[in-house]
């Protein structure tokens, strides 16, 4: 999996490409932890090029959410394909995350 962070003011857009699964979850956690430690609190996960996520990947996103919420930050998801959205719906996480149609929509919704 490739994670390409892009700064948009205080917001970090994480462009995720490939699969967020048992194999890649450690690198996702490591790189996002570093960004949180450096002070980032507002994240958009851009899932345009994300083609798979398993329960371990979901756990990593929840873990990131808990960390940023502890610092009064926010996390939003954007551009989920119908198949990826299905996984969030099956696990009812679509009720927990703010899922936006586009990255641009997500960036506009932060209460910064």
């Amino acid at each position: 999996m490739e994670i390409k962070p892009e700064k948009n003011g205080e917001i970090v857009v994480l462009k995720c490409k490939g699969s967020l699964d048992a194999e890649s979850v450690a690198s996702f956690k490591k790189s996002t932890q570093k960004m949180v430690d450096e002070g980032s609190r507002y994240f958009v996960i851009d899932a345009t090029a994300l083609n798979f996520v398993d329960s371990m990947g979901l756990g990593a996103i929840i873990s990131l959410m808990r960390r940023v919420q502890a610092d009064r930050g926010e996390i939003k998801l954007a551009s989920l394909s119908p198949d990826i959205r299905m996984i969030f719906e099956l696990t009812r996480l679509h009720r927990v995350f703010d899922i936006c149609a586009t990255v641009s929509d997500a960036c506009k919704k932060f209460s910064i």
Partner: peptide, 19 residues
């Protein structure tokens, strides 16, 4: 069974049974 929404683990078996 589905764990609490903020739990970062425990969804694997739930997904297997759901799918």
């Amino acid at each position: 069974k589905l764990p609490s929404v903020m739990s970062d683990h425990g969804r694997g078996l739930f997904l297997i049974y759901r799918l």
